[in-house]
Design a protein around this nucleic acid. Structure first.
Lengths: 372, 372
DNA sequence: AGCGCATATTGAATGGTTTCAATACATCCT
DNA sequence: AGGATGTATTGAAACCATTCAATATGCGCT
């Protein structure tokens, strides 16, 4: 007497169910009466499988509601479809928008994001990079800190594809996607100078950061190109609001080199600056003009509305993704360095400087200071 | 003649180096002349190892600069030290702050974050939950959508510990950490009523969301407790700024039930509302008072400064983490439901309603409407 | 010295997938 | 029919860390 077919099917089910463990390729293979290799081929689609067998396999997969174990897959392939995403914070809106865009495209393409935060500290960065590598991530997107060399070396040594975003690096080993800080800064500062500003304060987080260097170059070029005498002061500050405010105050009250325009490096510092100006009773744009790099989402809500350099966030994310994929598929011909353009948006926070203390008495339009 | 010790050591190195692959426990074990079991015991610290052997092992680890393969570890242990973090977006500051706090505590404790975004859509959520489970994450933090049932079932079935954050659920299977929306809303609305408001508009994203339900309960209770006649309108809207603005406009211009106070459910909608009021030329707080749930970071930068309900973001993250760890270590006695308190911050965007059209002529303080 | 007990150490088996050399099968041509 | 060519399928081996039953070692006591 032959075993009843239904009972037989039941018996195949048994293994996975009785042992209360998720079904494996082996379970699927048994139920579909094929080999594990065939199941794997159906799953990956890399090798042609006859329609008949494919049907059996798909049937078995859905019967058992089998799901791939990505850890085992990653172990075997030595690369998991995890993508490491390394940014300083998520609580800065520009970074958050980047993360958001990356997750969107990653999940659409069947990848997952492993997110690590560096807090802008090279040590922390190194530690976080090591964590990513322990998971054998298939690729890394990284917004590097000031001193990313050791992290870069580790990544290069591991052979993991890396795309550097937002902050250009001299390292010739990696693809990178940035926006043209030089041009954006040149455009913005040229406007300030045209309006008559001759004392500019540039507030930055870290002077050594490559983006900062580019921005300073753009600023200086704009001054040269204008042919005017413009004094520039750079204020570097840690992330500590109280300390920042007091340093800003002393800058703004130093009679001689008192700035009439402030350019701020990121949206967090802009928030603080804006708050500080209120606190000091300094009016914007009457007393001082303000321009922010990294557009905060409240730019058009405040009074005055804020002039900004708006980074092409989503374009950066999508471009970086494409580069990373190309590299993961080994299709990269050479190192790519893409530079996108940022949009400079002039709103009300920029105006001609006040008339008093004219450094060289430029012809700035007459303007009453009162506004009430 | 015995092999020279140095040559022997060199020979041990060979394997990993010649084959150009990262060293494994086996390589470490050979070099330290111990068994793989011992190496594993040193690594995990779960079993006591003599100081002598431990020294040898540590030495070998550093010599070879061995790093654990977390994929293999996860495969064997059936749980990886990856923590799935599931939120709607990162581009809303409240969510971004949560993510930030989670990453901080996770990386301090040697865990990594796998971040997935649900876009508030149950379908997407389910898909993302499946992705997490395929990686056999050790635990999940989730800010659920309106209809999380299937996701919950899947998670429960997989046996993965889950902590539900921010949005209370009736599901009795999972720990949860929320803040007291009822109390916060009660406090805020009581103040509005005390100031004389009798027409309140509540702008929400999704009426069915549990937090919304709680907030509405708090609102209604505040009205009951006040003993006054207060009309409430609820405006539900998708995430589409143009559509939202036009719906808001019709609400604000509907002569009869025209609200004098608006409560908005999250910071993104608050941004839109704020922008819309400007657009319509409706003054705040003169014509209408405004209160935001989820404190945007520009609350004190705009004019008028914004009244808000500030969620205890970091406390939520840390509490949720502790609950999750307890559950991952199987120390949980019962299902925990922690409810933290939110802070209600009254700033300038709240004032008594304008005098015109007194519904029942309450004694609100005389107030000239003109301002500039 | 001999015995028993406690602790440290060992290493084969395990987990789930993919890979790839080997095999089976089908097709076509002469 | 016989042989050659090409494609589909198979299943053992590999990936790497952990587990745990079995063994080895050390210690104390008589």
């Amino acid at each position: 007497m032959w075993p009843h077919p239904v009972a037989a099917a039941g018996k195949v089910l048994e293994e996975a169910i009785l042992k209360r463990r998720p079904p494996t390729v082996l379970d699927v293979a048994k139920r579909a009466s094929v080999s594990v290799g065939t199941v794997s081929n159906v799953l990956s689609g890399r090798v042609k499988v006859s329609d008949a067998k494919r049907g059996l396999v798909l049937r078995a997969i859905s019967d058992l509601s089998y799901t791939q174990n990505k850890l085992a897959q990653g172990l075997r392939q030595k690369r998991s479809p995890l993508i490491g995403l390394c940014v300083p914070f998520t609580s800065v809106s520009y970074f958050a928008a980047l993360v958001d865009a990356f997750e969107e495209v990653a999940s659409d393409r069947g990848f997952e994001i492993m997110q690590v935060l560096t807090r802008q500290e090279p040590e922390k960065e190194l530690q976080r990079v090591k964590s990513m590598l322990r998971y054998h991530v298939g690729g890394i997107m990284m917004l590097p800190s000031v001193a990313p060399q050791r992290s870069f070396d580790l990544i290069a040594e591991s052979g993991t594809p890396l795309v550097v975003i937002d902050r250009p690096t001299a390292d010739p080993r990696f693809d990178q996607v940035t926006f043209d800080n030089y041009a954006a800064m040149h455009e913005a500062v040229s406007r300030l100078i045209a309006l008559g500003h001759r004392h500019i304060l540039f507030v930055v987080r870290q002077r050594l950061l490559s983006v900062t260097v580019d921005r300073v170059r753009g600023l200086e070029a704009a001054i040269r190109d204008s042919g005017k005498q413009v004094a520039v002061n750079i204020l570097e500050c840690r992330y500590d609001e109280a300390a920042f405010i007091s340093r800003l105050e002393s800058e703004l009250k130093s009679g001689q080199r008192r700035p009439t325009a402030i350019v701020v490096s990121n949206s967090l510092l802009t928030t603080w600056t804006f708050r500080a100006l209120r606190l000091f009773g300094i009016r914007c744009p009457d007393d001082v003009s303000l321009l922010s790099i990294d557009e905060p989402d409240w730019s058009d809500l405040v009074d005055p509305t804020l002039s900004t350099i708006r980074p092409p966030t989503r374009a950066i994310a999508f471009t970086a993704w494409d580069l990373l994929m190309r590299r993961m598929r080994n299709e990269a011909q050479q190192v790519d360095r893409v530079e996108l353009r940022a949009e400079v948006i002039f709103r009300d926070s920029i105006a001609p400087p006040p008339r008093r203390k004219p450094a060289r008495s430029e012809a700035s339009p007459q303007r009453t200071m009162a506004r009430s």
